[in-house]
Design a binder for these strands. Structure first.
Lengths: 196, 196
DNA sequence: TCAAATCTACCTACTAATAGGTAGATAAGC
DNA sequence: GCTTATCTACCTATTAGTAGGTAGATTTGA
């Protein structure tokens, strides 16, 4: 059994494209950027992704798959509502700490009028999945009296998601520490237990 | 006294550039887009804004000026803390309802690695001004027992700003109505009075 | 088995379009 | 006549995308 020295080229292209999408936005990166990073030629990327639209859509669909796997993973763990909420928050914390730095929803929304329709639609699906997931956590938390919030669980789910997307953006413009302050403030208002 | 039939060209360029920046992001609009919209030639825009960096910075500085004027206007009105908070929220509501649709902070953050340094710095100033304004509202509200929140007023200000930026983005990806739901949820948690 | 056929994963070399930007002419108005 | 504002006519760099080729691995089949 041999160790894979080199990642699959197609996967590497996807990873770098995801990176660039988060760092610069869809219209600010080019095939050349990816080609240079990988040490291959422009045309080779067209071999895997005939058009930039194909690549853009693939990046979003790939992110969608990852999100769904995380959701399954969380459900398999049988977490308490506060723990599952923290699991969701940790996804965004991972965005901050790793290369991505900005949420996909924010990226797609800001460049909405300048991205292909397939990316728009995929972005909408991701958003709806996030909202539904958060809402289910909130409902379970309210039923078990482990999470505290007022009003509609859907509206509260929207508020949490908006806060996280916004938090990453404020962090990028000012200071990473501000992300943690926002998440802390959010957690304090939601989680009933005294333990941190 | 004559009615101004035509707006000042420089101002029109700024307005359209602001529009395009919010709709597509910095790297997805071109001088040509503006020239076509105004019915002038590409080169004429270079006359007012020699480089795209100049234009980009001018748009952000112009937005900064508008923000400061709104802040002065609010202070001149001697509003109660909940009223001043609503004034701030109404700025974002205006973003949603008018042409802009996305907050400037979000736009600049998402394309951060792909915008000129001067835009980055101007964006940071706007963010800090917003945070400081919100924090002052929160402090006054807590002192006068008209606003309710726990913990640090700075962290709470960050949370509100993040929510609003994220709310615009979720609204763009899904439904404008979601913006109002987020703002409603936020108001309910902050404002102590029963009256809406 | 071994040669032909096919496929994979790139390459070089190109195109058409668009980007931001510039030089210099020109028209209009004080 | 000088300034302001706008034009025509470019330039250079970059973009996404295409055409066609090729070395080497893999599959097929007589």
């Amino acid at each position: 059994m041999e160790v894979a020295i080199q990642k699959d080229t197609k996967q590497s292209i996807l990873d770098i494209a995801e990176d660039l999408l988060h760092q610069k936005g869809y219209n600010a990166f080019s095939y050349k950027d990816i080609a240079v990073a990988l040490g291959i030629k422009n045309a080779s990327i067209h071999y895997y992704f005939p058009s930039k639209e194909d690549l853009g859509e693939a990046v979003v669909l790939y992110a969608f798959e990852k999100l769904k796997k995380l959701q399954e993973k969380a459900q398999a763990k049988n977490l308490s509502p506060p723990e599952e909420l923290d699991f969701f928050l940790s996804i965004y914390q991972h965005y901050l700490e790793k290369k991505l730095k900005i949420g996909l929803i924010g990226t797609l929304a800001v460049n909405f009028a300048a991205i292909p329709e397939k990316m728009q639609i995929a972005g909408q699906k991701i958003t709806q999945t996030c909202i539904a997931w958060l809402q289910s956590i909130l409902e379970k938390g309210r039923a078990s009296q482990t999470l505290r919030f007022e009003g509609d669980s859907f509206a509260q789910a929207l508020l949490i998601l908006a806060s996280l997307e916004g938090a990453l953006q404020i962090a990028r413009l000012t200071d990473n520490q501000h992300f943690y302050q926002i998440v802390g403030q959010l957690r304090n208002s939601l989680i009933l237990s005294i333990t941190i």
